[in-house]
């Protein structure tokens, strides 16, 4: 069976203040795969994610997430869709008034009938997956940048969402934490069949986890395909990106 598409974007065009940020963006992400969105700073990656999440109203184009057309959802359908998504925001977006543990437990407490003590254990386990058990009772303002990122990831996977969106989860992590984060994503993908759509610039990460690559350049998709094809691509920006990597390896 052809793998289903978890995300499908067609002809997405968007502008801020008359300035066109996304120009006719089309791509798709398949179920059970890790799709990586690449592109220079300011190329519109976060804007694409925000559209997929319905945080920016769609003005032009068509978007389907988990098979649902996001432009006309009822309130209930919208909620049910949100509950199937885990989102890792670029700046973490943990609630500052709650401890790390309460942050991770929030969706579990709000949307399931799991007894409190079990929620606490699930939270501790999730924090353990990102090596952050010890931060359970700390407040986000007491964490370092990398710890914040890992805590935010723990919150994003709190509900074992079938589809996980990540905006630069690896930025600012040391190589060892980065590798364990990649392994976690691979494990989630392999064991839970989680599909992942992530923005990252870490080439080592891309090599480890990416199945499918979408390359954005100034709001346009200039490449979409596998990692091998991306490395062979003649598209100047894509070529430049991977040649930096090749030089590093030498």
């Amino acid at each position: 069976m052809e793998p289903q598409k978890v995300v499908e974007v067609k002809g997405l065009t968007a502008s801020f203040d008359e300035k066109e940020i996304l120009k006719d963006v089309s791509f798709s992400a398949k179920k059970g795969e890790v799709t990586v969105i690449l592109g220079g700073s300011g190329s519109g990656k976060t804007t694409v994610l925000r559209h997929l999440l319905g945080l920016i109203p769609l003005t032009q184009g068509h978007i389907e997430v988990l098979g649902k057309d996001i432009s006309n959802l009822t309130e209930d359908e919208q909620l049910s869709l949100y509950l199937q998504l885990g989102v890792f925001y670029q700046n973490g977006a943990l609630l500052n008034s709650l401890t790390v543990g309460e942050n991770v437990g929030l969706p579990l407490n709000q949307h399931s009938k799991i007894p409190k003590p079990l929620v606490e254990e699930i939270v501790t386990m999730k924090l353990g997956l990102v090596n952050l058990e010890y931060a359970y009772h700390m407040f986000p303002s007491q964490l370092s940048g990398g710890m914040l990122k890992r805590a935010a990831l723990a919150r994003a996977i709190a509900m074992d969402p079938p589809l996980l969106f990540c905006d630069e989860p690896g930025a600012g992590l040391d190589p060892i934490s980065l590798e364990s984060l990649d392994n976690l994503i691979l494990n989630l993908k392999n064991l839970l069949g989680m599909s992942v759509l992530m923005v990252t610039h870490e080439v080592s990460s891309i090599m480890r986890v990416a199945d499918h690559i979408v390359y954005l350049d100034e709001g346009k998709v200039v490449f979409e395909g596998t990692v091998e094809n991306a490395m062979k691509s003649d598209e100047p920006s894509v070529k430049a990106f991977f040649s930096v990597f090749r030089n590093q390896q030498k």
């Binding site: 579990l108 079990l118 254990e121 386990m125």
Partner: peptide, 10 residues
């Protein structure tokens, strides 16, 4: 899923 695993251990 992960919560199921934790429930077993719980």
């Amino acid at each position: 899923d992960s919560s199921g695993v934790m429930a077993l251990y719980f």
